[in-house]
Design a protein around this nucleic acid. Structure first.
Ligand SMILES: [Mn+2]
Ligand SMILES: [Mn+2]
Ligand SMILES: [Zn+2]
Ligand SMILES: [Zn+2]
Lengths: 132, 132
DNA sequence: ACACCTTTTTAGAACCATTATAAAGTAGAT
DNA sequence: ATCTACTTTATAATGGTTCTAAAAAGGTGT
């Protein structure tokens, strides 16, 4: 199975439910942004099978911890995840409440001049809010 | 009173509670980051007076809407606000779960090359995650 | 001061995304 | 097949935020 590695690395056995979550998350041309609810609905519609929310939460968090998914820093009542794990940024369309990818190459190089003692930079994320 | 303008512009009458919230928010040398709960506790301790959470929420949201406060885009179970309303960015110390200001001047100029049809940029915010 | 009407405050309830629980089911090892 | 640890699931608990509606305070005209 093509998702064994991701599952094993995340400390998860390849169960039917987890493989289905993988299918929906990783078996696509394009990457996408989602909330837990989005994902649960997508599974139900696309695979005609309901997976309990608890399992979806657990699996998504395990993948996020291992870096197979990213959380998108944004203020919302729900948490947004991203299947695009490359270094990249986001537009947030305030009217439509939609996220749009913004490639690293579409943002000039970002140089953080200030240093914090004893800490090192793990990530640099840009959020560009859009209005009409 | 020194906060009349902010309150009036936000469509709020200058009540005792709102003036106290203003005192804690705006009567300081330094700007700061806070959650609603932080703020309610600060008022209780600093002014020795309890203001109901509903009033704190309402007032903070009214100020935020008018731009007298900013929300900080970050993933947390609580919403973080900022009394520093200048264009600036943030470090987020993952270990300590603390936000640290990052001046515009400490980040090279950010040029967003990609354009979205019919939309204009309202803000550009950088979040730099820190680890040990 | 008083009456009258509007706005505000407040405690508590409701809401809802997320997390915890624990019982029943499943997978992998022997 | 049996055993054991892990997993799924329904459901409950948690907790930040929002809503409600009754009491309090503010403003206005007399
Ligand atoms: Mn989460
Ligand atoms: Mn809010
Ligand atoms: Zn993305
Ligand atoms: Zn700040």
């Amino acid at each position: 199975m093509k998702y064994l590695e991701k599952l094993r690395n995340s400390g998860l056995r390849p169960t039917k439910q987890r493989l289905q979550i993988c299918e929906v998350l990783f078996d696509t041309e394009k990457t996408f942004h989602f909330t837990i609810n989005d994902l649960a609905n997508k599974i139900k519609k696309q695979l005609n099978n309901k997976i309990s929310l608890a399992t979806v939460y657990n699996t998504v968090h395990a993948f996020e911890k291992k870096g197979y998914l990213k959380q998108i820093p944004i203020n919302s009542n729900q948490t947004y995840f991203d299947t695009n794990i490359s270094d990249h940024h986001h537009f947030y369309d305030l009217k439509e409440e939609k996220l749009i990818d913004l490639d690293n190459s579409d943002v000039g190089p970002i140089n953080i001049l200030k240093k914090i003692n004893g800490k090192k930079i793990k990530s640099v994320e840009v959020l560009v809010k859009l209005e009409d």
